[in-house]
């Protein structure tokens, strides 16, 4: 081996230090380091946490709360073909281009909690709905579309495959990402009441667009699994949140802000959730609901189970904490039939 003397070592060390220092220098001069999508990393964390104290608005993009506004605040679509349902629903809400900018880095977050039930059991999100969303994202000009969840019932690969979602996403040209342990970062939750921080998958803070695609189902601990509950799949160590589950779900919803939530109520699980196991508990409702306001869509979804928003702890708390609009009379609702 070639000898490596002190002088050379010092020279190499000096070079390395200089390289590191240059990076800092560049940052100070305004040439900021960017991530793979070209976004400024240094600004991200600061802008991603919305200031909840000023406005009850949930989305910086659109003032959807006003019933007099142009775009409806909630679109409910009935039909039998998931692709035409989501296509017509998105058109009604103003087009997916509203949420997905050209070249955007999109994450779709379905519910893929377990790997031992097929979609028929209404435990995981409808695969064709997820596939159609991937397709629509690309049509809207998305640069990269990834689909991911952090399942508790089996390995991610197995859950992705058995839910049928992996196949539909692949057909549509999207990527299934197995969540990397490395990317779960302790993230402080400034608006948290029960939780001051989460071990959050960092991509959910850096993505341009997050499309939340929960399935509406019964849940033993949380009463119902809806849009906000579905965000539990973005953190690690979710079992630690159960002692103050409802408050923690709302805390998480203040941190992870889906651009749009698509409620999969094509088939819903009425009992024995979240993992089901009997087709007797499944009801085909052939409906989806779309809203940029996660509280609005969750409030609407309680009606599927003959409940009101106040019956579900986290929905009630989210309304109380002004996270979004829960009073559906204040929301411009558009109901369409995709089969018509």
């Amino acid at each position: 081996m070639k000898a490596f003397n002190r002088r050379q070592f010092l020279r190499m060390a000096g070079l390395g230090m200089t390289a590191l220092a240059t990076q800092q220098l560049l940052a100070a001069c305004g040439i900021k380091p960017t991530d793979s999508t070209g976004r400024d990393i240094s600004q991200m964390k600061a802008t991603q946490t919305p200031d909840l104290s000023t406005e009850p608005s949930t989305n910086e993009m659109e003032p959807t709360q006003s019933p007099t506004g142009e775009a409806p605040g909630l679109v409910v679509v009935h039909g039998t073909n998931p692709e035409s349902m989501i296509r017509k629903g998105m058109q009604a809400i103003g087009g997916l281009e509203r949420f997905v900018k050209s070249g955007a880095n999109v994450i779709i977050k379905p519910n893929i909690c377990a790997g031992y039930r097929t979609y028929k059991y209404a435990v995981t999100t409808d695969p064709w709905l997820v596939g159609a969303l991937v397709k629509l994202c690309f049509e809207a000009g998305a640069g990269r579309v990834r689909v991911m969840d952090n399942p508790f019932g089996g390995t991610a690969q197995e859950c992705y495959a058995n839910s049928g979602i992996a196949e539909q996403v692949a057909n549509a040209g999207g990527e299934m990402e197995v969540m990397q342990h490395l990317k779960f970062k302790d993230t402080s939750c400034p608006n948290g009441v029960a939780q001051s921080s989460f071990k959050l998958y960092e991509e959910f803070l850096t993505a341009d667009t997050i499309i939340n695609v929960p399935i509406a189902k019964d849940h033993s601990a949380a009463t119902l699994t809806l849009g906000m509950k579905n965000l539990m799949g973005t953190v690690n160590g979710r079992e630690q949140l159960h002692s103050s589950l409802h408050e923690s779900i709302v805390d998480l919803a203040t941190l992870v802000r889906p651009t749009v939530t698509v409620m999969d109520a094509i088939r819903i699980l009425l009992a024995n959730g979240p993992t089901g196991g009997s087709l007797d508990d499944v009801k085909e409702t052939n409906t989806i609901a779309i809203s940029p306001d996660i509280v609005t869509v969750d409030s609407w979804a309680t009606s599927l189970f003959n409940m009101s928003p106040s019956d579900v702890g986290y929905v009630r708390k989210a309304i109380d904490r002004n996270l979004g609009v829960g009073d559906l009379s204040q929301v411009k609702l558009e109901e369409i039939n995709a089969d018509a």
Binding site: S220, A221, E239, H242, T275
Partner: peptide, 22 residues
Amino acid sequence: CLAWGHQTPCIVCEEMCPLDKK
């Protein structure tokens, strides 16, 4: 047990039991 011993809501075990009939 958090529920039995500490009267704290927690039914993680029930939620995650994978059997058709828990």
